[in-house]
Design a protein around this nucleic acid. Structure first.
Length: 278
DNA sequence: TCTATTTGACCACC
DNA sequence: GGTGGTCAAATAGA
């Protein structure tokens, strides 16, 4: 690690192949989610087909070394070993590593904002398998920020990250930022159930029409509250079906209230609505 | 014994 | 130099 990689035309080509395979796998996973939740004429057959598609992508990515994203090649190292020391068990090293040069690739990295989204939730559980890898006190923040990565980071090359920050004001809410998406096919987040129109000012034209939606879906009325926005691209038929000005709402796996993306809404209003309990 | 969490240190970015 | 993100040894818990 550390030496600059020279990308040959061949390497460039495999990069494109990997990118395409990764996309394909993601789409297959989304299709699987939809089939599971909405069924079809022959759900068992669909399930087999999707599983086969996924397996094909997994195999392809595996054969190519699974290097999607900018860190995966590093992450392929087994935990506890480092290529910098030629595979020496780091548990035998002193805690202060003597000469960690810049190739260690640690520190503060930027990510594309399009690859991240933030929700507010009273429950940090989302049904995914996360492993905490750090916690940090943040300047001007009352609560520390916790850092999680996908449990399958190494065994399935999954680069999904999650940051959880407790919110001020004793609301019991957490600001949860997801960076990247799961490519590990671990238990997916349940797809959204509710569609709520967006108002002119960018805030939700909530709650009247939303309540009608809730009433129309009796299976959601027992414990419904404002839901977290999921990745719209994962629900293409909904996105296309409702068009602009609509946002997708639901509740998380535990039925806990989530609150929408900060970019779209007035958080205070949403929390008040949520607490009103409809 | 294995796995997950904690926590101090390291490092990149501003 | 300050801050935030990640690493990894130490530790806790199952």
């Amino acid at each position: 690690m550390g030496s600059a990689a020279v990308i040959s035309p061949e390497g460039k080509k495999s990069e494109v192949v990997i990118e395409e395979l990764t996309k394909g796998r993601k789409f297959a996973m989304q299709l699987q989610d939809l089939l599971v939740d909405y069924g079809g004429p022959k759900p068992e057959m669909s399930g087999v087909l999707v599983a086969e598609i996924l397996r094909t992508f997994e195999q392809g990515l595996f054969l190519l070394g699974c290097p999607s994203g900018d860190q995966i090649s590093d992450n392929l190292q087994a935990p506890g070993f480092s290529s910098d020391d030629g595979g020496v068990d780091i548990s035998k090293r002193p805690k202060k590593r003597p000469d960690v040069n810049s190739s260690g690739r640690r520190g503060r990295y930027k990510w594309n904002s399009s690859q991240s989204h933030t929700i507010y939730s009273a429950n940090i559980e989302d049904g995914q398998a996360w492993r905490k890898y750090g916690q940090k006190a943040i300047l001007n923040a009352k609560f520390p920020r916790s850092y999680y990565r996908c449990t399958h980071k190494y065994d399935r090359c999954c680069n999904a990250l999650k940051q959880v920050q407790g919110m001020e004001g004793g609301s019991g809410m957490y600001q949860i930022t997801y960076i990247g998406s799961h490519t590990c096919n671990s238990d997916p987040i349940q797809p959204p159930h509710l569609i709520i129109p967006k108002g002119d000012n960018g805030h939700m034209a909530f709650p009247d029409r939303a309540r009608e939606e809730v009433a129309a879906k009796s299976d959601l009325t027992d414990n419904f509250s404002l839901g977290s926005v999921q990745d719209h691209s994962s629900v293409p038929h909904l996105e296309e079906g409702y068009g602009d000005g609509w946002e997708v709402y639901g509740k998380d796996n535990a039925g806990q209230p989530d609150v929408e993306l900060e970019d779209y809404f007035n958080l205070d209003d949403l929390i008040q609505l949520d607490e009103s309990g409809f």
